[in-house]
Nucleic acid binder design. Structure first.
Length: 256
DNA sequence: ATGGTAGAAACTCTA
């Protein structure tokens, strides 16, 4: 089973990129973030014509998540149980016995702001809820835009980014607590090239200069990590005209 | 040195 995550930064704008990428890459499950679409405006017809069932949890202008699957979808659940949040950031569904969680972690804006405090509070709720999720679903995959670069090698210039939002120590500690629940960063299961990232600012030609951060991740429970055969970042969509500022991440899980 | 771009929506906020 091929699992993928991609922050598309507006599904309306990126629909053609997505459809072409689905046809070329042939993933089984895709988690999308920043769809920026209300559910009534979701391009269900186009996605279904490409061979994918879809569930979605969106809102106007900001946030919005969706899960696409060509192996069916069941037990769809929006949000973090017990955590009231106006932002549509989490969606879960089961595909072939795998519990898939699609997440769009708050950006946090800047250290010390209200949005940063919300990010850390949100992480606490997410962590608590994932601990329960792991207890109920041994085969759990948590894919999305975490808005955290875990390590220095995940940042193009760790000195400049030290203490900044997306790389501050409290955010990295929150990310490590997720790993502490029994989740594994699929990307680090395998040898990877140096200076590989998933997000590059639109400004200052950041992508051309590879001034990026690795903030999009696929976390796998032990049972799934054992079956994981590869994990890679697909840089091609980021190089297209009018791209998302994020690249997709793909993990292959061996069928049982 | 505090820019710069992109998206959505509506002359600003978020990333």
């Amino acid at each position: 089973m091929k699992l993928a995550t991609w922050n598309v930064n507006s599904l309306k704008v990126r629909l053609q990129h997505l459809l072409e990428w689905l046809a070329r890459t042939q993933p089984d499950v895709v988690c999308l973030q920043e769809t920026k679409l209300e559910d009534t405006g979701f391009p269900k017809r186009e996605i279904e014509a490409a061979g994918y069932a879809a569930c979605f949890h969106g809102q106007k202008t900001y946030n919005g998540v969706a899960i696409l699957s060509r192996r069916g979808l069941s037990q769809v659940e929006p949000g973090i149980h017990g955590y009231a949040d106006d932002h549509k950031r989490v969606l879960s569904a089961t595909v072939d016995g795998v519990r898939v969680v699609c997440t769009y972690v708050p950006n946090g804006q800047a250290v010390g702001t209200i949005k940063y405090a919300y990010k850390l509070d949100w992480f606490l709720a997410f962590e608590r809820w994932l601990a329960e999720g792991l207890a109920h679903h041994p085969q759990l995959a948590v894919l999305g835009d975490y808005n955290v670069a875990p390590e220095e090698r995940d940042v193009h210039n760790p000195k400049r980014w030290a203490g900044q939002v997306l790389f501050s120590e409290p955010e990295r500690a929150a990310f490590r607590r997720l790993l502490g629940l029994g989740l594994t960063d699929a990307y680090r299961l395998f040898p990877q090239a140096e200076r590989m990232f998933t997000w590059w600012d639109y400004r200052l030609n950041a992508f051309q200069k590879n001034m990026g951060l690795r903030i999009d991740h696929i976390l796998l429970s032990d049972a799934l990590a054992r079956r994981c055969r590869s994990c890679s970042i697909d840089l091609a969509p980021r190089a297209l005209e009018r791209p998302s500022d994020h690249a997709p991440v793909i993990a292959e899980i061996a069928d049982e």
